[in-house]
Design a protein around this nucleic acid. Structure first.
Length: 597
RNA sequence: GCCGAUGUAGCUCAGGGGUAGAGCAGCUGUUUCGUAAACAGCAGGUCGCCGGUUCGAAUCCGGCCAUCGGCUCCA
């Protein structure tokens, strides 16, 4: 059953109404806007006469409990438009009338003529015998009585723009959650606590992957040895795949002349996301690049291209900087400086489908290797009612069909989302959730009709005439930062062996075993695993074995090799795996066989 | 950028108008040990920064900065 059709959904919707009822009683003059159920609960957007603070939430929650217990029946009323207006103005919040009805009236105006208008009412009589009605314009459905709302909690406050538009007034959003039983609520709160332990920002610090420094600047990560190792392993893997698939590496600078970015259109359309312009004082101005594409355009345009040269595939792990708004920066999932696993493919129209298949195949290869299964693929297509797009309709149709055909051919399930195309072309995005359930866009493939036009790119066709190539922009990881952040959360820091910064920790038991441990480390570092030398550390601190095991386990090292008198005598190593614990003594060769599985 | 919250030792956190506390980490010494924390001692802080109130501020107030949750925006 769809969540929207479930009892839980109705319960949460009713909980939102209950919250609104409590607000109208405790904060007269508050203007209700909109209060729907959402994935893990509900919210209500409200304009308060005086700004609500978090310490007000317990009072609201207590009021909600009190109102819930009264067993108020929740009744549906279907009314005409005139009645609806009258209800909103005169009665929705007793005594306040039109003064608090702004948003509801706007909502009413937004409902098309002919659609059924409904209200939901819940009412009570207080000790003095006064009737308190709470009526809210709402499509419903709801549960039958407020008594059913027993297990709920108000979570947090946030600002939210009316109708999601920055130009509108910012309302106060109260987030809450509700479940059918107290046990489910407790479980949910417990799960939230657990999820926090998977947060890449916490694990990144604990595992020594990366750090931030206020002296360096917001959103600018410093990669520590273990994190930098992870990056190397990942780029190395992708680079090899790309070589197999006919990509050529290019390298371009961190900054470029404003002339370049005027030509690409970034100065006009992307300026607010760019770090300030650098003036050199002699009529030159430069910007720190927010994207790599303009540089790759220049490389393509630098020479005559024949139809026989295409496709041209330029790949670069390009370091870009974007001045994200301060409130948007989130660890390495949303940094201001990051590295795209970028490439630009310049293709003939007749090559588009095959190139797309190639790119989607690469993406699937990457996802498989990384062990990511919990992603969604979304094909963003043109919004037919908008005219903001560049490029000819025929091209768009061909490109959209190529994207879908490639996904179908390779068995990648996808959803089509009209209006999610870029203005310069349709695209395929991979979307993954983080530990806290937030969606992040990862890998992307985008067809671009805009830049080849702006840079007047050409190739000479069979007919000896110039033609315009199509450009595909693609990044299977999306960015190294975001991918590593999400992988960290997905694996809770316990990376698969091929990816783990330290794959094997050697633990000598006493000082007299240190030399043998170093020897073993050298031997292992000469051993190739997954096409790379093994990454090995030696823990020769003067600590007990138990302590070394504990700390290496907390560092999520996949294997520990314990070396003591018995092993030196018998030519074995004591093997301990991160997942299965003590595996006992075995010959090194036996361990290495196991490792390759 | 906007709304709300948080900021005490390297880390996790307690305390709170009258001279700063714990555990872990660090350092020193002892221990040389077989599968998740040996023992003892020592050292470590302008309580995010700036200003105000006060006889006195880490504590109260204001501003700023950083971080966290959300909105908007995005790889």
């Amino acid at each position: 059953m769809r969540y929207e059709d479930s009892y839980l959904y109705r319960l949460r919707h009713s909980a939102a109404h209950l919250l609104a009822q409590a607000v109208t009683e405790l904060h007269p003059g508050a203007k209700l806007a909109i209060g729907p159920p959402v994935e893990n609960g509900f919210y209500y957007d409200i304009e308060f006469p005086t700004q609500l603070r978090e310490e007000d939430l317990p009072k609201l929650e207590a009021k909600m409990k009190e109102l819930a217990k009264l067993d108020q029946r929740i009744e549906r009323l279907e009314v005409s438009r005139e009645e609806a207006r009258a209800l909103i103005v005169d009665e929705a919040i007793p005594g306040m009338g039109a003064a608090v009805a702004d948003y509801k009236l706007q909502l009413l105006e937004g409902i098309p003529e002919g659609e059924t208008l409904s209200f939901y009412n819940q009412q009570r009589t207080d000790r003095e015998g006064t009737l308190h009605r709470f009526l809210d314009l709402c499509r419903g459905p709801h549960v039958d009585s407020t008594k059913e709302i027993k297990a709920f909690k108000l979570m947090t406050l946030a600002g939210a723009y009316w109708r999601g538009d920055v130009k509108n007034k910012q309302l106060t959003r109260i987030y809450g959650t509700a479940f059918e039983t107290k046990e489910e609520l407790e479980l949910h709160l417990h799960n939230l606590e657990e999820a926090k332990k998977r947060d890449h920002r916490i694990l990144g610090k604990e595992l020594g992957l990366f750090m931030f420094s206020a002296r360096v600047g917001t959103g600018l990560p410093l990669w520590l040895p273990k994190g930098a190792t992870l990056r190397q392993v990942m780029t190395d893997f992708l680079q090899r795949e790309q070589v197999k698939r006919g990509y050529d590496p290019v390298v371009t600078p961190a900054i470029g002349s404003t002339q370049l970015f005027i030509k690409s259109g970034h100065m006009a359309n992307y300026r607010e996301k760019m770090y300030p312009i650098m003036e050199s004082g002699d009529d030159e101005a430069y910007v720190l690049k927010p994207m790599n594409c303009p540089f790759h355009m220049e490389i393509y345009a630098s020479q005559m291209r024949s139809y026989r040269d295409l496709p041209v595939r330029y790949a670069e792990f390009g370091n870009v900087h974007r001045y994200e708004q301060s409130g948007e920066v989130t660890g390495i999932l949303r940094a201001r400086g990051f590295t795209q696993d970028d490439a630009h493919l310049f293709v003939r129209p007749d090559q588009l489908l095959d190139e797309f298949i190639g790119v989607v195949d690469l993406m699937q290869c990457v996802l498989k290797k990384l062990g990511l299964t919990n992603f969604r693929a979304r094909v963003g297509t043109k919004d037919p009612s908008s005219d903001k797009y560049v490029g000819h309709d025929d091209n768009w149709t061909a490109a959209q069909e190529a994207i879908e055909a490639a996904c179908q051919k390779l068995g990648l399930p996808y959803e089509v989302s009209a209006g999610d195309a870029a203005f310069y072309g349709p695209k395929l995005d991979l979307i993954i959730k983080d530990a806290l359930g937030r969606d992040w866009q990862m890998g992307t493939v985008q067809v671009d009709y805009n830049l080849p036009e702006r840079f007047e790119l050409e190739y000479i066709g069979e007919d000896s005439k110039p033609h315009r190539p199509v450009m595909i922009h693609r990044a299977p990881f999306g960015s190294l930062e975001r991918m590593i952040g999400l992988l960290t959360e997905q694996y809770a820091g316990a990376f698969p062996t091929w990816l783990a910064p330290v794959q094997i920790a050697i633990l000598p038991i006493a000082d007299r075993h240190n030399e043998a441990a170093e020897g073993l480390a050298r031997q292992l570092r000469d051993t190739v695993f997954d096409d790379r030398p093994l990454r090995v550390s030696v823990d020769d601190r003067r600590e007990t074995l138990g302590k070394k095991i504990r700390e290496n386990q907390l560092q999520k090292v996949p294997y520990m090799l314990i070396l003591g008198d018995k092993d030196l005598e018998e030519g074995t190593v004591g093997v301990r795996s991160r997942e299965d614990g003590d595996l006992g003594a075995m010959a090194l060769a036996t361990f290495l066989e196991r490792l390759s599985v």
